[in-house]
Design a protein around this nucleic acid. Sequence first.
DNA 1: ACATAATGTTTGTAATACAAACCGGTTTGC
DNA 2: GCAAACCGGTTTGTATTACAAACATTATGT
Lengths: 101, 101
Amino acid sequence: MASSELLNVHPALFDRARLAIMAHLSLAKGAVDFNTLIAELELTRGNLSTHMKKLEHDGLVRIKKAFIGRKTRTTYICTSKGKKAIQIYLSAVETVLRSSL
Amino acid sequence: MASSELLNVHPALFDRARLAIMAHLSLAKGAVDFNTLIAELELTRGNLSTHMKKLEHDGLVRIKKAFIGRKTRTTYICTSKGKKAIQIYLSAVETVLRSSL
DNA sequence: ACATAATGTTTGTAATACAAACCGGTTTGC
DNA sequence: GCAAACCGGTTTGTATTACAAACATTATGT
């Protein structure tokens, strides 16, 4: 059954905001910071914060905190596990839906 | 911003079970019945029932009830709105993720 | 020195996915 | 012919979770 391929998809990706976050991070070469994500994805700070905590917990993202001058700066990068999850997501969706066009 | 394309996607599709249901219905020519969906997608009855209620409420699916012999039989078909939602979903996901491979 | 802003995090709440319990009706066993 | 098991779904209760408001901390402007 083709639709069972969806079972291989990491559950964290079945959320509009988190999918957008992961897409953004997997595109960007290098790290992306908190405020950039806020601005581009139109999320509130609280919302982004909790999403990133979950994504880190699941190992899809790595959080880096650093001082820029004396202010803190939080950036995120997509782990290889995260990239793989995105690929699985895309291929699963395509095999399940492509033939229905 | 490419990722904003995800905002056009119908929110009901951001759920693994409902996406699988819609994929199945949009593939099948004609109606699919309750028990077939249960069997192929491995959902509980309660779970499927509530998902279908939501999908009908959102206009992505139409529910038909009929008697087969003296038993009732519930079948579902994907509306044109549902098919369009699937197409939007697929193209949004592809434009957002394709370049990240 | 005091107000305002910037950067995140924690907390409270509303929405929701899920399965258990339920319900109306039918078939089976005895 | 009556009870028990079954079928086809629906409603209800619960546990999870997405979200924004409130909070905490530090920096900046005046």
